[in-house]
Design a binder for these strands. Sequence first.
DNA 1: CCTTTTAGGTTCAGTGAACGAACCCACAGT
DNA 2: ACTGTGGGTTCGTTCACTGAACCTAAAAGG
Lengths: 176, 176
Amino acid sequence: MALGKDYAKQECSIARALEVVGERWTLLVVRDALYGVRRYNDFLVHLGAPRAVLAARLQALTAEGVLEKRRYQQSPPRDEYVLTERGLALWPTLCALGVWGREHYDTTPMRIFRHAGCGSGLGRYGECRTCGIAVPVADVEMLPGPGLDPDPADPVSRALLRPKRLLEPVIIDQAS
Amino acid sequence: MALGKDYAKQECSIARALEVVGERWTLLVVRDALYGVRRYNDFLVHLGAPRAVLAARLQALTAEGVLEKRRYQQSPPRDEYVLTERGLALWPTLCALGVWGREHYDTTPMRIFRHAGCGSGLGRYGECRTCGIAVPVADVEMLPGPGLDPDPADPVSRALLRPKRLLEPVIIDQAS
DNA sequence: CCTTTTAGGTTCAGTGAACGAACCCACAGT
DNA sequence: ACTGTGGGTTCGTTCACTGAACCTAAAAGG
């Protein structure tokens, strides 16, 4: 966090976690990565964060081992950011936070998450409501919900209208 | 959040939740409230946050309906802050965040959480490992873990050494 | 060959938030 | 009359976020 005063002396794993993901934009970067966003520019347009902040967050998350920067083409050199095991492990937290936000503020869901295996919805903690098991991130299917109001100017937002699995890379249509 | 740019246009319940609890110190205030802290001064010494920030966060959380300010004595007028239903609903999120922090950074647990009914530990989402059910917050028992290094100068830290249920008010010993 | 576009950044001035210390006030105790 | 305590507010400094501009390397277009 590093704001002169970090969460020193907090004797608590929650505070330790917040040192890594507690800054502004950080959890939204992780969320987008779970949604399948991988490229700098896609994060940029979908989040609307300042470029400098995004660059700082991607670097910090990479340094913390939440994201991994990997070269996907040589010429011109281009990198993408993908979640590590440690990053994937944030899914339950994000899921719980999203459930809380939806239940208490956005009553109509923006996105619906289902267990891809059996098609039923996820419970409060990311578990499948019928199977009862904790669904692995890659088996979560995401589809637009009734409360969603996509931004037609944002190709990432458009791409996320198609039902897809988490982590599956977003497909950007080139139509401006 | 209100830093010129809020998380506008995020079309997402996670972003909505972060507008409420995403600022620095906010989630730690909620954590302390779950641990049984209720008074301004106790939050102050235990968190180590600047007084002005704490006052702002308590006010904001009260306005958002996460905390409730209630008068517990008339003369001199004294108030305490207790979690509402909406605040209690943040427990799964904090629990998941704590589990993540512990698994990836603090390998020895600072605090141990158990289902008070059966005595067994909590899983990744706050569910009881043997009963399998989601444990209600008030039935979670908290005890110090091996990794805990309490601050002897802080009475709240000392009070939390005693095993206790979540939400049960902390008992501050008056010895200096 | 020259120009434009694209991905992925860095730099910089302005502003708003966090920090820490000091101050304030009402009441209680002695 | 003095001191202590709970619960704040004020204020100057520092730091992080913001938005806009700028940079680079390579590819694409003409």
